[in-house]
Nucleic acid binder design. Structure first.
Lengths: 232, 232
DNA sequence: ACCTGAACACCGTTCAAGT
DNA sequence: ACCTGAACACCGTTCAAGT
């Protein structure tokens, strides 16, 4: 929370611009970091010592601001050795970074996940690296995009999961009505103590390894079955 | 959009109650069905021919309303033969239903995914069925909950993905800068024409099969590796 | 008990007015 | 060009007042 450097600034154009896309984005991330804090343009303007209307000079609206944040986050994820490692190895640190990068801003993940990716160059170059590595490693051409999107869905879902209160799935209310779930929960909890990781992170690592292994195997298998759209 | 049966109702208590939790929830789902429509209490009240403040008689606030919707959706998912089929078979139709049930309400998925699951009995009984089946099939006790949560993360992420515009990942802007991604996208698109499914559904089926296969294999493998929390 | 109507403290966005 | 300040059309929530 940056305090206003000059709270009672006079009207009219300042001698030197107090705002910039960079400064606004930085303040926006700082605002999105706080947990329960509602991510509003009013609060953002307040933290910058400025009126809300001033923000519209740099971003057309709230959606464009969030899109800007998303673009900056995507470019932060960066490369993870896709050129030197097999795709199924390089994808692991990439997925980890992706999850913590997006999960680090509780006030905004939902908006980031929901907002249509308006064809960002950053995302495209990110995907291109992965697609190239998978192609090089002989992954079936028509399954490359589905595999990447499936991974992304899991990562986004995991980022959202990491924001829920810790004891989310713990059946406190009626342990006698959910005996198997309760004992499974306890077993998982006991296992957790041997690691330096949260339950959400442990689950993510477990699921990620499983998904990547499954995607790898599917890259060499014959076909995938399932019902038609109209049959659902 | 239900129109008000009596738009200019007089003030004071009506002879017979015009609202109920059931009626409000039904109208809320109808409202959440429309794509771009903002899900507001004002719009909900309007569709019920009632003032916004009247809703607070049945739900403490917007969050409680959404929690009520979530509970109703969860109980709709229901059983899918976990008692008679192996968990890795019964889980497939369960996951499909889960995704379409939550994905059917664009205006609300993000809120559903974000809102902390306040210990709903419906969810707990749902998870109990799965946990019992996995336990019966010899799945390692401490991995049952992580497996379920990983699946749920994938499903939530896929539900969000299914709401984005169709050509989301298609690199329209600079196909020459993303050659591998572009050709992979085209190959996937060609493959898609042979099925009666959307790209999102195809990806979901592919990823689901891979994840379940991976989780199954992890249930018989030795250990899962990964970095510690502090090392991320 | 069940709803209206007014009130409160907010939103995001637009736009004339100042320098 | 860059910001303020007022204005607009909204929000969700509270609460006295009516029947």
């Amino acid at each position: 929370m940056t305090t206003a450097p000059d709270a009672h600034r006079s009207a009219g154009r300042p001698r030197t611009a107090v705002l910039s896309r960079e400064r606004i984005l930085a303040a926006a991330f700082a605002l999105a970091d706080v947990r329960g804090g509602d991510f509003t343009l009013a609060a953002l303007a307040r933290s910058l010592g400025v009126r809300p209307s001033a923000l519209h000079h740099y971003f057309a609206g709230k959606d464009e601001l969030i899109a800007g944040m998303r673009g900056q986050l995507t470019s932060r994820v960066g490369d993870h050795g896709f050129d030197t490692l097999p795709w199924h190895e390089a994808i692991i640190p990439w997925a980890r970074t992706y999850r913590v990068t997006f999960g680090a801003h509780p006030g905004i993940v939902a908006a980031l996940a929901t907002l249509p990716v308006a064809d960002e160059p950053e995302s495209m170059l990110d995907y291109e690296r992965i697609a190239r590595a998978m192609h090089r490693d002989g992954y079936p051409e028509h399954r490359i995009v589905p595999a990447i999107v499936a991974l992304e869905s899991f990562i986004i879902g995991s980022a959202l999961d990491s924001l829920t209160p810790e004891d989310n799935l713990r059946p406190v209310s009626a342990p006698d009505r959910t005996p198997h779930l309760t004992s499974a929960e306890e077993a998982a909890r006991a296992q957790l103590r041997t690691h330096d990781r949260s339950a959400a992170t442990e689950t993510f690592e477990f699921g990620l390894a499983a998904l990547v292994a499954g995607l790898r195997a599917a890259g060499t298998a014959a076909t995938v079955s399932g019902p038609t759209e109209s049959g659902v």
